[in-house]
Design a protein around this nucleic acid. Sequence first.
DNA 1: CTGTTAGCGCATTCAT
DNA 2: ATGAATGCGCTAACAG
Lengths: 345, 345
Amino acid sequence: MTLKELAAELGVSTASVSNAFNRPDQLSPKLRERILSEARRLGYRGPDAKARSLRTGRSRIIAVVLAETLTYSLNDAVASELLSGIAEVLDAHGHTLLLLSGRQDASRVPGSSSIADGFIVYGLMPSLVLLDELQGTGRQPLVAVDFDLEGQPTVHVDDEPACYAIARHALTTPPRRPAVINLRLTEQPCNGRIGDDQALLSAERTITRARLAGFQRAFAEVGIDPAAVPMWNIEENTFEVCAPVIEAILDAPADERPDLLLCMSDRIALTALTLAEQRGLRVPEDLRITGFDGIAEGQYRAPRLTTVRQDSVEKGRIAARMILGLSPREDRLLSTKLIVGDTCP
Amino acid sequence: MTLKELAAELGVSTASVSNAFNRPDQLSPKLRERILSEARRLGYRGPDAKARSLRTGRSRIIAVVLAETLTYSLNDAVASELLSGIAEVLDAHGHTLLLLSGRQDASRVPGSSSIADGFIVYGLMPSLVLLDELQGTGRQPLVAVDFDLEGQPTVHVDDEPACYAIARHALTTPPRRPAVINLRLTEQPCNGRIGDDQALLSAERTITRARLAGFQRAFAEVGIDPAAVPMWNIEENTFEVCAPVIEAILDAPADERPDLLLCMSDRIALTALTLAEQRGLRVPEDLRITGFDGIAEGQYRAPRLTTVRQDSVEKGRIAARMILGLSPREDRLLSTKLIVGDTCP
DNA sequence: CTGTTAGCGCATTCAT
DNA sequence: ATGAATGCGCTAACAG
């Protein structure tokens, strides 16, 4: 049943039916009541969303474009928190959430994205094709989260200072063999030790590079040559991908094994913690570990993770408010908080 | 720039432009190439999704309706796994994922849902209004997951046998004081001990009731009166909501404290485990704990959780295939697997 | 192989 | 306060 059919059935104009649903002040309460109740009786559920969005140009749908696959993002605590924050605001304002991945073949779904009223883009995606497309259409607002996008507002946390702070904290007890476990830092995929010859992603575009800069500033300040600190790279922030790399590190001879791991995520740190425990290494006596993110899983366990807490939920809220036009479209920088847990007291 | 404008600009018909994007076989490769390249040059990004979906009646969007709030669901490991499985299949078939909550005010977004080509409904939602609306429209397919919906195909796991099996396993070592920690089982909200007078949700509609039935069958079989086993109820599957209830249980005098907790979710079991460890209780010596779900967090820690593994990702895949018409629309029952971990050997 | 045409279902003028 | 008319941008029949 369409609006037109309903109007014909009731002997009123289509405008009145439309107004009954959309603009109560444009018709008498009495007529409105009649239309609404008859609509219900006849099984008319309200204006069709597709037609309405074509006509009005708005869909009340906000798309979140995730740099990783949806499958990954949905199982990542940090991405989930961000989505939570976004969903909270959208929900409160009658909008819904469309999930898009920057990894899916954009050509498969041509312009499918144009259904959304706005875009929140989370993280730097491997291909910029989709981003070009999103920006090209011109009309819909776009907010970038955790990476910079020319000409678009960005929501960030203070990655460099945060990593500087946690590294300074860790380095107050001088380590014999510090090491850094990076996340997605190399130009070319690399799941393991980073050699001197390997190119890193450029500093402007990725937060992991900013985090590394923070670590290195701290190293330099306490007289450790940053270039001499061994680094590993993790390609995906999951236990499965992370574990083999960490295992190789922990299974090195005792006089080569690091006694301090600065990890770029809690997921990595927790993996290290689990694997260290399995090997009977004492944390923090034999091995100190720091993370980044402050996810719940690291705090509700013993020993508690020493980490940097970033409020991803709030990041999501801010991005969502911006995209809905509830707050000004301008760059935002959130601060973080050092959490001194048990893994690196 | 619209399709029509582009056609005018190129001096071809709108049909040719449309075909260039949608039906390559309907025009010469040469013309198609010209149209596509000119489109790119002029900044035309392809057919508008809103107009296209109105015209074709399909949007390539599948909506997932979650019984809980989005904020909760996104942070729940089981719901996230389900969504992962759904996203995997949708992605592979050029569809996108719209997240809807059964808790949001349906009237706020009238018919907003009608934009989706199909619905996957996860869990029994408090208000059935939205469900009526979804079914009422008649046309779009609908699949229910983890609850039964008259006339619609359902994807389930074997909750009752699974819980029977894990309870039988636990009861091979006779407990002195067993207890059951339920999840959302009572008719009225209740976060704490379930009294004799409290009504439980009906067995047909909720999986938690089926799980309890499994536990109780096992109790009866080993000669324990199910009615004599104390039960608690948890309103939301989060650490925060769960912790106070568990604390009260663990802080009871030693001669009242249960020595076996059958929990309806891993989240609950992990909360119990964490709180027990904090109190210096030995698991499993002083307290045995079982969970349900088999989430990663319970397996990648020590002691490993004894639980029942359900493959939520696969549940999602199956539901998604069904909704896309890739597999027959019929009820599916997935089997589960008992995982004997360390918390109840 | 290409062009013309008629809606998809609705919201919004502008009359009355 | 109400109704008739217009077109949002596109696709699919059909005609050429």
